[in-house]
Computed example of a mutant assay.
Amino acid sequence: MNLPNKLTILRMIMIPFFLVALMVPGIPGGKWIALALFCLASLTDMLDGKIARKYNLITDFGKFMDPLADKLLVCSAMIALIDLDRIPAWVVIVIIAREFIISGFRLVASDNGIVIAAGWWGKIKTVCQMFMVILLICDFGGSTVHIIENVLIYLALALTIISLIDYLVKNKNVLSETK
């Protein structure tokens, strides 16, 4: 197993620790520990891709698991943030629905021997969602920060929908190539 794939697995392993730090009351500095873990996990996403491309270490495992690890990290964070009353549940439902649609699409493609890597719209969406989560975890308060949080929430939502449409349009042939 190469380094980028190990970083992807590390990102997935960090998720429960992040959630415990964020959600379990009474952990001294829990919010900041959660923030550090989320930022570190998010950085592994950028790092594994750069290493894979630079050293030609792109694998089918990485193409499949890297986006899945991102989805697990960001979706688990957003679900926790619903409980903390930081993001509306309906926004998270739309975002997670997109992830289910894409995952289902990838399964159909995989069944036909096709591996579909993440596209640029999806990557931009993920980065926006990660910044949104970071700001929502920080919970700085204040009206200006609240406006910025809302802008990021709705920008992430818009990018989620745009990236879904882009993904489906670019890969519509997968449905016509079913066995």
Rank of each mutant, 00 (worst) to 15 (best):
L68H: 04
L84K: 15
I93Y: 15
P25Y: 09
F105D: 02
R86I: 10
V127Q: 04
Y55R: 14
A80R: 08
L152F: 13
M14C: 00
V145N: 12
G30R: 00
K31C: 06
Q129W: 09
F131L: 14
G141H: 08
E99S: 13
A77S: 06
L159F: 05
T126P: 07
V20Y: 15
S76T: 13
G30W: 11
N56T: 05
N112G: 02
V91E: 07
K63C: 01
P28G: 12
P88L: 08
F61C: 05
V91N: 06
W121D: 08
M65P: 07
G104S: 12
L43V: 02
I27G: 11
A77H: 03
G49M: 01
K125R: 02
K179G: 07
P25M: 06
V115L: 03
E149M: 01
V151W: 04
M23Y: 05
I162S: 13
Y154Q: 09
G142V: 12
L157V: 07
I134N: 11
I124M: 13
K63H: 00
K71H: 04
L3T: 14
G141S: 09
K71Y: 07
V108E: 01
R11M: 01
I58H: 01
T144C: 06
A52S: 01
S110L: 13
S143R: 14
Y167A: 03
K50P: 05
G62I: 01
V174N: 09
V127E: 00
K6V: 01
L40Q: 02
L155N: 02
F105W: 01
I101R: 12
G113N: 01
L73W: 03
N2C: 04
A156M: 09
V91H: 09
L19D: 13
Y55V: 05
S163W: 12
A80N: 10
